[in-house]
């Protein structure tokens, strides 16, 4: 056993010495990609990664655009809810322009069931302060009735009148008075749950 242990390395060394003396055989042909192929592959992989990145960016961009569009739509819906309506002198009837504004509100309110509104009626400075308080209340009530007429729950609307106490315009002329004969709208609940109207 001990002899055999020493014999094997000696044999191997002999073989090596003999081999060196002869002409070396050609190296085996390489089996991997060529340098050109490697370069192409690298370019391809970069391109693919770029495409992947581009597509992700496009998707992100699209998502951002969609989000921005939604935000715009929500902001628009909020502005629609807050848009004032105006009245004729001493009247609480809803003018055609007021009804158009209110119909847009109805669409938003239907899409946003959590939203609640305070309707604040106002009057111009002419006439009795106490009667103007009543007139402002009439104006708020007229809008509430109009909205409720579209099947919206009455409990979503509170009303208040400020009479002639909170003028928008402080002039003493018809232009100022016309701006002051108005209902204002305050979102009292569901401000973060406003949805644009569904088409």
């Amino acid at each position: 056993m001990i002899v055999r242990r020493f014999v094997a390395p000696v044999l191997a060394a002999t073989v090596l010495v003999v081999a060196c003396k002869k002409q070396p055989p050609p190296p085996p042909a390489p089996t991997g990609p060529t340098a050109e192929e490697l370069a192409r592959m690298r370019a391809d992989s970069i391109a693919a990664a770029q495409r992947r990145a581009d597509s992700i960016a496009a998707a992100q961009r699209a998502a951002e655009e969609a989000r921005a569009a939604h935000e715009r739509a929500v902001a628009e819906a909020k502005a629609t809810l807050q848009e004032m309506v105006f009245f004729d002198y001493d009247k609480s009837d809803l003018r055609p322009d007021a009804q158009t504004v209110l119909r847009r509100k109805v669409a938003v309110l239907r899409a946003s069931p959590q939203v609640q509104l305070q309707i604040a009626g106002n009057a111009d400075e002419r006439g009795s302060e106490e009667y103007n308080l009543a007139l402002g209340n009439r104006r708020a009530e007229a809008v509430r009735q109009f909205l409720v007429g579209f099947g919206l729950a009455e409990s979503r609307f509170s009303i208040i009148s400020y009479g002639e106490e909170k003028p928008l315009a402080t002039g003493h002329d018809e232009a100022s008075w016309a701006r002051n004969r108005r209902d204002e709208f305050v979102i009292t609940a569901g401000e973060n749950a406003i949805n644009p109207p569904s088409n």
């Binding site: 002198y89 001493d90 009247k91 609480s92 009795s128 106490e130 009667y131 009543a134 007139l135 009439r138």
Partner: peptide
């Protein structure tokens, strides 16, 4: 008292 029962333009 004051009333608007004849209309808001004619208290």
């Amino acid at each position: 008292f004051n009333t608007d029962r004849f209309g808001t333009t004619v208290p």
